[in-house]
Design a protein around this nucleic acid. Structure first.
Lengths: 203, 203, 203, 203
DNA sequence: AATGAATGAGATTTCATTCAT
DNA sequence: CATGAATGAAATCTCATTCAT
């Protein structure tokens, strides 16, 4: 039988889920141990059986939930598709992931600036995604489907755009911004492709 | 002689500066009144002589520092320049502003998600900048310097790109990202223009 | 084992007792949480483990101690006695109760004016006592032991007299007032009865 | 020209009025120097030119406003009237005085218990009124208009009744109590007189 | 006389963490 | 494993009072 410190103990997961959810709603400071405990119908002491302290709880929670692998799978799947279809699916997939991990995104955004540990986890995650995407674009350049663009910048623009759109529209609920629907993604991808596909350019 | 509640009282400014600086380093919760007071060599009580409470201090500090007008001036100046030069200067100006307001940016990013008041100030600021930039691009389309693009999306991409670049590279200090120097800006602008200048496209 | 929120937890009672005692000596504001905690040999935090806040502590303390039932028992016991004996016992009982609850009386008197919540508890208590006593007097009128007096006013005079006597002599320690002893009560009751027993009067 | 410490300086009066009014609404602790100053359109420092400290301000304010002399005048006026008319006028006058000094009454009631200084002022005032009234009743016994009652107790009952009636009905706003109007006063006086006028009784 | 900035002490409240049971 | 009472440190805020101007 697993002891309580096993990473897959149901209780541990429950605590981490509650921690993430509360922190996404009220910030790290606002997600108190008492609230987390109440949400899980246990008392404060119990949390300390599973995690050394609050920071430990959050580090593990964020760590386990960082979304990397999804992009890997996705890029593999679309390798053979035409680029416009591929980029569309990557964008859709990326949006799906950050929407599902919306609570995590809130935490990354608001804590990364001050909390070095979380900042590092976030940076690593971003970096891995960027590298995979860059490799994908490089291959497309190689096969002539894209012009000779600076893929480092291109990847930044690509993810940055969808991330900011999500942040402003869906996290901060700014109205008077276009909905992030299929049309929006399509238009965005087309805008990128028009620039990336021109032959003979060197950025 | 000005009284302490005049917005331009030197002491008030000093307190607001300290508040912003501390919050950018340690977050809203971490920027305690005691720390702010110590930074200004006064006692906590003094802060409350100038501001009703902590929220009031931060609201006023953020409000007064929100950077809007700079873009207005900038767009006016570049109205007659060729578009590639104009966009380059806008991007440079935008980066200059958020670099100077770096501390504010940290606060906006990390607090907007949980603090509705700051979120609103941030959203208003973003919205104003977006509208001005959109008007500029619309005019350029009218004069034939740009193709018939969706300027709402274009503006989002433009600012979003530079913002994310700044956020990742200079706020979160992610290495293995290109420096945000003149070359980076130039390359980025070119990438955008290639797509925006194509005739006959409709996004 | 009882948890700390059970109304009969010993600790809870101890805190409420200390709160009442301190408030009766120094007023609501003067009865600080720190003092209450010290009196009970715990730290301030502990108080907040048992009560939401200071107001909560006092509301519950006052609520639980409001003296109603005693009069009910008393009036039942004296139902068959001659009226002069009955009134004497009621007066004695009333004085006994407010003497025992002396600290509560201080609080009711001094806080009811400004603290609406305590004012309401006090008013309810007064009202219940008044109604029971009025019913008793009404019955005595019915059986012909009292004249046709206005029992509402009579009850007010009866309790008001003993209350003021207690307030001035024993709470405020005004000297040059007669002691509130058996003779005083007897004289007072006689004075009332002389007026109440006259036949054929209608107030 | 009077200096600011002259008792009749208009400013001093204004401060004391404001202090009494605020304290009657919010209690002694709630009547802060800042509020008093604001009510008088001056700044905190100014109050300290006129009074040594907060306690000094209140002691003087309460002292000057204690209502003694009115009863003296009144009792003089009614000396020749029949006793039932006289008592009626005394009761009316007493109610008028405490109604006009309603704010003072609040303060006396709520502060006397804890604040020894105010308690003493209150006790003195009560004592003086009681003595004058007792002298009046003694005279009436002497002239045969009243029976041989214990005037000390009678005075206590008389003032106590009207005071409690005022306290409960008009200060604490207890509803389901009779209005303290002319009828109420008349009924009350009659109730007292019926008892006081019987010959041959000895209380 | 008047101002109002500044202070220092203290009040309420919150919270991560510990520990005996 | 779980409880929940208890702690201690710290945060926000209030307020009477002082004092240079």
């Amino acid at each position: 039988m697993r002891n309580c410190h096993s990473p897959s103990s149901e209780r541990r997961q429950q605590f981490m889920d509650a921690a993430i959810e509360l922190a996404s709603q009220r910030g790290y400071e606002g997600a108190t141990i008492k609230l987390i405990a109440e949400k899980c119908n246990v008392t404060v002491g119990t949390i300390y059986h599973y995690f050394k302290n609050k920071e430990d709880l959050f580090r593990q929670a964020v760590q386990e939930r960082a979304f990397t692998s999804i992009l890997a799978t996705l890029l593999n799947d679309i390798d053979e598709l035409p680029i416009e279809k591929g980029l569309f699916l990557v964008a859709q997939g990326f949006l799906k992931v950050i929407r599902e991990a919306g609570m995590l995104v809130s935490i990354f955004i608001s804590e990364s600036v001050h909390n070095h540990e979380i900042g590092t986890i976030y940076a690593d995650m971003i970096s891995q995604n960027r590298q995979m995407m860059q490799a994908y674009l490089d291959k497309k350049i190689h096969t002539g489907q894209l012009g000779a663009i600076d893929t480092a910048v291109a990847v930044q623009i690509f993810f940055g755009h969808f991330f900011m759109a999500y942040f402003h529209k869906e996290l901060l609920k700014m109205d008077n911004l276009p909905d992030i629907d299929e049309t929006f993604v399509l238009n965005s991808v087309n805008l990128f492709l028009r620039s990336w596909q021109q032959e003979g350019t060197h950025v």
